[in-house]
Amino acid sequence: MNKKLIYSLVAIAFVFFITSLIIFLKSRSSVEPKVENPSKSVIQTEVDPPQLLKVKIFYFTNKSRYMKPMNYELENSPIKIELYKRFIDLIIQEKEDFITPLPQGLRLRTLYYIGSKKLLVLDFNENLVTRFPAGSSSELEFIYFIVDNICFNFEEVKMVKFLISGNEYNTISGHIDIENPFYPDYRYLRIN
């Protein structure tokens, strides 16, 4: 009986020792500092960029609640922010066969890019709120028309934030929060 007890105790102690050892080793490996990927700040070379940049712009049609793509070419620029501006100017032009979900007289005042957050801030004129037709769907159509198209074509942009005449607003017409930046929602897109 005593022998059995000793064997059991030894067995328990052994298992306990092994598990403690595993936990110790595991915890040691988990405290190793994470090293940031240093290759992120690679400077892009500006060797003869193609004159025209191929882009896909997704549009709503009256028949579908999803946006479908059209191919366009955009005059290229080595300055990214200039390229974004050209792209936005292109997408906010009225197109006859498609629905451009924008209020009348909408104009991009300025824009800037925050590299650390991969965030593009777009500052539109006041017509975004004063001439917006209201309605949740209208707001969502406008927001994701802009956000999805930019993020789809420029992978370095992960989020988009809207300003109106340089100011933060809570909503465009009482529904969707625009104080926070937007990630794209590609559920609005269809390739075919």
Partner: peptide, 26 residues
Amino acid sequence: NSSFRKAARGPETFYVSLKATDQESF
């Protein structure tokens, strides 16, 4: 509701969610 697409119709119920989506998954 109101939409830029005049054909849009039907009820919709929303709740809050902020899922991140990306081009890769698309």
